[in-house]
Nucleic acid binder design. Sequence first.
DNA 1: CGCAGAGTTGATTATACTCAAATCCAGTGG
DNA 2: CCACTGGATTTGAGTATAATCAACTCTGCG
Lengths: 232, 232
Amino acid sequence: MQAYTGTNVSRLPAAAAIVSGGTAAMPRRFDIVTTKLGGAPRNLTKGEELFAEGDAADFFYKVVSGTVRTYKLLSDGRRQIDEFHLSGDIFGLETSHDHRFSAEAVDDATIVAFRRRRFETLAHDDPALGDQVMSSMLCSLERAHDHMMLLGRKTAREKIATFLLNMARRISNDDRFDLPMQRSDIADHLGLTIETVSRTLTQLARDGLIKLAATSRTVVLCDKAALRRLNA
Amino acid sequence: MQAYTGTNVSRLPAAAAIVSGGTAAMPRRFDIVTTKLGGAPRNLTKGEELFAEGDAADFFYKVVSGTVRTYKLLSDGRRQIDEFHLSGDIFGLETSHDHRFSAEAVDDATIVAFRRRRFETLAHDDPALGDQVMSSMLCSLERAHDHMMLLGRKTAREKIATFLLNMARRISNDDRFDLPMQRSDIADHLGLTIETVSRTLTQLARDGLIKLAATSRTVVLCDKAALRRLNA
DNA sequence: CGCAGAGTTGATTATACTCAAATCCAGTGG
DNA sequence: CCACTGGATTTGAGTATAATCAACTCTGCG
């Protein structure tokens, strides 16, 4: 927990191991920690379910590549996607015994699973490990709160603008990027319908704020200033 | 962090002190811990601001009595109330140096402030203390996620039903309770307008699911089963 | 080439918003 | 005790934003 302990996450070996996933390029001890936590890479095919709401939360996960969506369903099938987890993101760590979300691969993705019990044991010996996860959760909380503002008070145009700016920042440093998810995912994330998502994107393109490639998954942000004005 | 460490919060002395606020009825050591954390009771009058978005987050708080709202504003004044904090709730603990919310008293309220820095020091010696706050944050995260579903995918009628059931549970064990906040607060919490809140409450009363007293702050849940059906 | 899934576009509608006015209520002062 | 005031709430009328229903287009792929 970066701010709470005053420690810098980047200086914490255990934390760094979780964040990076313990690649071959890293010092030996980082790999040991990762291995201890039981990081076993797993490939998911597009649409594959990783866990469902109510499943035992024995593991939590880190995205190595690809994208994972976590979501909740209402009894009649309405869906709210709370977050898209991109490469490097940690997700699925729960307060309770069960998962409160379902998780599926948005596209073909690779994830690493960490055994929660083992992590808990280690965290007691190494507070820095707990700090790191705490930090991750606090980021999640922060994004959740911003997203509440979006869902509760922003217009469709503002929602799309905010979404595009966030994805641009997370996916690439460039203003050109490929959205990994389809329109229905965006809709269920922003509290809209696919038609409204499509229309709004078209409208933003018509107004010159963005460009949509033929495949329509590729987006170019042309007028970030205007998008930012819509963002708040 | 209850689930994460596997420890039961109720068995943790430091945690218990934070939760309870260290009343006179509690064993001496609890009071000592609370005092160490710098709990200085403070009275807030209706509408008084406790802190604003962007203020330094040197303290966090626990509600002793009354109700506090935390919220964010868009540049044009649109407001999203993320949570109403009732007696016993902890709020205002941040990941960053600054508060990401503003906080105001909904009615006359009493709160206890805890110095964050001091808490951090103690948390390092006593992991249980950190666990407790972690647990508090995870509850907050859980509620935030449920609230995203509400904001993104529920109808006005469903939002109000969910809100009433939640408030009933939190305020009293009874089906009759007084709402501490006014319609505009409810509206900004549920992503509605005051008119829609009012109309929806009237409609629910007309349909016999609830009763509204003359003062219209007092609510009676008549048909909880029907309300629950609207809830999910 | 045709099919299926994804995405776009169009027409219409519904839900919730906006603007406006009336009512209710607590508090205040004559 | 009662009229007056101002804030909160309710109610009404009309509207707008986004949803719904439906058709059509595009793209990738067997």
